[in-house]
């Protein structure tokens, strides 16, 4: 079953038309990656799906249900998790308080994660529990942002450029944490990246955006088999 379906998505900021008829599906349990250069429309796609700003035409389905135009907090409560590219950690709140905020996204199936459960998944965060969000490093903030999203037990996680702005060694730590997460927890991932090698470590499916249009959709294997794709759409 398709966890997330996007159909004929057109997005606008004011009078600028950013996304043009974007359409793709993310199957339940898979890890899809949205590749594209800076400005290709990856972040706008996520904000359009989350209803966080752009005006949108088209349809968005969450596990078969039409959620187009649903306010962000309702989307979150229906299982759509969102980790923005700038992480948006609450600088004045402690790590634990940041995690508890993730619990508001939770609706009815079971209960939100307790901070201790999160610390089991992200052992790096445990010693930082009392630290203020503003005092964390970039990598720590990225882990916290993902962890906070998980607290609400999302069925779909929109993860925007987790490697952005991180030193390679830190990005490697984040990647390790994400890979272990994919093995231990059950959710559908839609990842946006321009770092192809980082993304390929997680992806099962690949979609490529170019200037607001979807130019390629396929499995990871098919994508890997056609190296011309990378040079055509992704090389800087």
């Amino acid at each position: 079953m398709s966890a997330l379906t996007v159909r004929n998505l057109n997005s606008y900021y004011g009078s600028s038309h950013i996304l043009w008829n974007v359409a793709f599906d993310v199957e339940e349990g898979t890890s899809a990656v949205l590749l594209g250069r800076n400005g290709a429309g990856k972040t706008t796609s996520f904000k359009s799906i989350m209803n966080l700003g752009p005006s949108v035409r088209g349809r968005i389905l969450l596990r078969g249900e039409d959620v187009t135009g649903v306010p962000p907090h309702r989307l979150a409560r229906r299982g759509m998790g969102y980790v923005p590219e700038d992480r948006r950690i609450y600088a004045g709140f402690s790590v634990t308080e940041n995690l508890r905020l993730g619990g508001f996204a939770f609706s009815s199936n079971g209960r939100p994660m307790e901070p201790d459960e999160v610390f089991d998944l992200f052992p790096l965060l445990k010693p930082l529990a009392a630290r203020r969000g503003g005092q964390l490093s970039g990598g720590e903030q990225q882990l916290l942002a993902v962890a906070r999203c998980l607290v609400g037990r999302p069925s779909v996680m929109l993860l925007d450029e987790p490697s952005e702005g991180l030193a390679p060694v830190i990005a490697r730590n984040v990647l390790d944490a994400l890979r272990s997460l994919r093995e231990n927890t059950d959710f559908t991932l839609l990842l946006a990246e321009q770092n192809v090698s980082f993304a390929m470590n997680l992806a099962t499916h690949v979609h490529v955006l170019e200037q607001g249009e979807l130019v390629y959709s396929g499995t990871k294997e098919a994508f890997d088999a056609d190296p011309a794709l990378k040079t055509r759409y992704l090389s800087l």
């Binding site: 989350m50 966080l52 700003g53 306010p71 962000p72 907090h73 979150a76 409560r77 969102y82 923005p84 948006r88 609450y90 600088a91 004045g92 709140f93 905020l101 993730g102 619990g103 508001f104 996204a105 939770f106 906070r148 999203c149 609400g152």
Partner: peptide
Amino acid sequence: EDSHMAGALGLNVG
């Protein structure tokens, strides 16, 4: 501190 993110985290900002 951040009303957009609060909405995305499930807080009813309105």
